[in-house]
Write a protein that binds this DNA or RNA. Structure first.
Lengths: 187, 187
DNA sequence: CCTCTTTGTGCAACTAGTTGCACAAAGAGG
DNA sequence: CCTCTTTGTGCAACTAGTTGCACAAAGAGG
């Protein structure tokens, strides 16, 4: 439902080839809408046949057969339409929360290690977001585009802040419980 | 990947029929692993043929042909195994963030209303979580099961707190931007 | 009694997302 | 030159999740 619009957004920001898009998804757009390169190529094909994007003209095939795409007016309209349309937030699906709930009935053996690992992952992600913030959003810029993008980055930062805080709390709770590691069984 | 384990967790907590599970997913487990009744029935079938759960014996068919299931030892083992196994957090996919990023290039017309609507939804969810907290986790309880479940609820509360805070911030930012509602176009 | 609604279970078809390759061209290292 | 790796594009098969029904039994309302 949203991948085509994620790609349209990326291409409006800057026309790109499939691989460039893949890279940009890994670094930026993908922070809140992840996609694999296979998904991206498939979707580029669809968007092209639907007439929302086209191959950038005036391009030598360069290395490989690298094709670059740009967004057509119809694509921009579709993106604007989609952006303005109301949408319900998608229901949460989080494995770690589910696992803790499961641990309440089958024991907490093993989860502590993975909580620590997740804490580390989220700390790295948070650090990365902060670097991006310092680099791309120095104080004093206030174009509309910058402010909106900063707002989105802010969400990422706040989310990771929530996770690191909560994971630390979870680890502290777990430490107080009897027999983690020994394979605590309740009932 | 995780639906069967969500169901196993729910069934270990309390044996149930398909409909009861559906209700419990709407109220509790589903807060962090949502599922439709069709998914649930399908999965119950699979879990039964795999020998992880079985129909509760000694049950009159009551009304309809209501079948209740309970977890077998093999199911409990599988759940414990899954809980202890390391798993990567699944990449984020959030439509609202994507839409704001899109709004940065195609204009913010229309998003304000939906931001307000989302704020309202998240505020309700937060209120609901807080009620559950007051009702189910009065101060002073500290069985391991309760503490773990409380921890999970805490994550829900903190997440909704993040969303309400961020959405308010987003609305404030948007109000400062030129020409929302008039269909702001950049470039 | 007879309809109408609610409760409960489920199939079928579809869409979205993932996994596992395949393969061609170009450059790197000997 | 010849292999080996990297870059770039993509197909095919699968798994997970969603949507749209269908239908039967029980209870509610006249």
């Amino acid at each position: 439902m949203s991948l085509p619009h994620a790609i349209l957004t990326a291409l409006v920001e800057k026309p790109s080839s499939g691989l460039e898009l893949t890279r940009r998804f890994d670094r930026s757009i993908g922070y809140f809408w992840s996609a694999t390169h296979q998904q991206i190529y498939r979707e580029l094909g669809k968007l092209e046949t639907e007439g929302l994007i086209r191959e950038l003209p005036g391009r030598q095939p360069a290395r490989g057969q690298k094709k670059s795409y740009e967004v057509l007016p119809a694509g921009r309209e579709e993106l604007a339409r989609w952006t303005a349309a109301p949408q319900d937030p998608r229901p949460l699906r989080d494995t770690m929360l589910l696992r803790l709930r499961a641990a309440a009935v089958v024991g907490t053996a093993g989860v502590g290690d993975d909580l620590r690992r997740h804490l580390d992952l989220h700390e790295r992600q948070l650090a990365e977001y902060r670097e991006i913030e310092e680099r791309d959003f120095p104080p004093g810029r206030d174009g509309a585009e910058d402010r909106l993008r900063h707002l989105v980055l802010r969400a990422g930062i706040d989310l990771e802040t929530f996770w690191t805080g909560w994971l630390r709390h979870a680890l502290a709770e777990l430490a107080e419980l009897p027999g983690e590691g020994a394979g605590a069984q309740n009932r």
